[in-house]
Design a protein around this nucleic acid. Sequence first.
DNA 1: TTTT
DNA 2: TTTT
Lengths: 178, 178, 178, 178
Amino acid sequence: MINKVILIGNVGADPEIRTLESGVKMARIRVATTERIYNREAQESRDHTEWHSVVLWRNLADVADRFIRKGSQVYIEGRLRSREWTDQQGVKRYSIEILADDLKMLGRRSDNPSAGQPLSPQGGQQGYGGQPSQPAYGGGYGQGGNASYSGGGYQPQQPAQTPAAPEVNLDDPDDLPF
Amino acid sequence: MINKVILIGNVGADPEIRTLESGVKMARIRVATTERIYNREAQESRDHTEWHSVVLWRNLADVADRFIRKGSQVYIEGRLRSREWTDQQGVKRYSIEILADDLKMLGRRSDNPSAGQPLSPQGGQQGYGGQPSQPAYGGGYGQGGNASYSGGGYQPQQPAQTPAAPEVNLDDPDDLPF
Amino acid sequence: MINKVILIGNVGADPEIRTLESGVKMARIRVATTERIYNREAQESRDHTEWHSVVLWRNLADVADRFIRKGSQVYIEGRLRSREWTDQQGVKRYSIEILADDLKMLGRRSDNPSAGQPLSPQGGQQGYGGQPSQPAYGGGYGQGGNASYSGGGYQPQQPAQTPAAPEVNLDDPDDLPF
Amino acid sequence: MINKVILIGNVGADPEIRTLESGVKMARIRVATTERIYNREAQESRDHTEWHSVVLWRNLADVADRFIRKGSQVYIEGRLRSREWTDQQGVKRYSIEILADDLKMLGRRSDNPSAGQPLSPQGGQQGYGGQPSQPAYGGGYGQGGNASYSGGGYQPQQPAQTPAAPEVNLDDPDDLPF
DNA sequence: TTTT
DNA sequence: TTTT
């Protein structure tokens, strides 16, 4: 009924970007979360790092492509999704990924090396690159103009990779009663 | 950047339902969350109940209207929203509400008295009532045919109160690569 | 930095209970979360069920033992934890579990069949069983007296399985300034 | 039953620090969360900033005092808590705060101006200041030596402001079976 | 393997 | 493989 994951951590490597034949863009990142773990008997503590496989689709993949680099600190909200696959030896394997529903870049813009220069050579950014006068995601993130996108909405008429409606979540309080 | 509230609690009274002239439906509920609070000095504990004002719009309002009754146990995910208003003495008041993005009915169907018989007399349910052969929300809730709706998506072409797309959040894993 | 999982779902089978030689109690449950998944092209939807392995320790294990049965609806908050192990063929395997930090029983008490009669034959409940006059967790859950325990606190002086401090998190607002 | 708030945002001013006669330290901060809000009719969007009052106690207050400055980006997890008070005109007022259970500093250390130099003149840090050889919170934050504290645990024997057990939640995986 |  |  509810299957929710919230991560804040650092990305271990530049994102892997793929674009399917259908034109749908996908990104995969590895996110590290480190926590201090306590041993009550020994009165000791040490750090434990957990690595998470996160998959992002469409606009979230595009934000990942454009803004995430090795070392970036990110907020991810998503769902656990198990996947079955067959390895090279023909053995059935089973893995768990986090399917992202939201992504936010954390820290200040200056924290992110070379943000804004997409890594992927497939040229998935035509929609953005040609518009110097109106940067699709604000030309940065942080407080005001943030580089984020809340995915997941049911958006039938919206072509993939269109910069419209970057951050999901409701309507104008001036026009609508809230 | 992130403003998220998650509540699980019981509803203190039947929902207040309103339909605006524009046809947009709204519901308001009061949700109680009780927690045990500890006094470390006295080694005592006691319960504290916090009451939350939750506002739901459109399809979420409709689910609230149809399934929530006094005593219902609900899951709410939403955002904090402050509101300024002027009371009858002309004094400026300020209140905080939770604007719901998701609602799930908890417990078994039998837990909810008279679920399925909407309270609101305004007749906001025409879209559902005339379809005995295809109950809009499964005639119940729980996990299969669930009485829930994740709101918030950017849904320009979707007329208010249409039962389509009840639970936001993605696409068919058979057709899409996840 | 943040590694948080929130689940609401139904338990697929009675919990597996183990007590280590050290006296530490552990429970393992499988929790199903079902969500509706949408195919935007086909305008179709179908349900997907994800199964989650949840591990609970100490007091949380005890609550699981006493109140969770096949079919129970539960709220779990925890962390993702990967584990490496070697299967019977000597192949290295890797699995992911959710290490619970909080557990709440959802629905009304009557929803849970035979709650209160621990399944585990190991007799780990001596601390509770001998007190018919003062049921350790309120003789039920739901609104007021809830069968829950928020684990995780650093509780050096607290012997395992002592019913003290069921729901972690704070002090008396009368004595402390909040 | 569950009353949880998760915020990521920027702090509007240096924290207000108070130490009670009992020696218990408290901090209050204002956190801004900005979100883009969409007007489906007008196909427009604009930003809305919500300000949150967050109260932190004991070790969390101390971390706030030492590391939070105007502009800091923070992660807060906590609970909604309403408070009644009487204003200067004798009118009963009612406000809502977020009582923090967890705090993490986001971004890189260099993002936070003058971190490590506590603002509060009350000298609440004696416990830390006198230990140049073993900085209580690593002299920085981030994931390794992080400036955070997950509050809330039931910690009867633990004197306030002792640096012990900074991040609640569990034991050594080498010694304990998880 | 749950739930509806 | 990140971060400090």
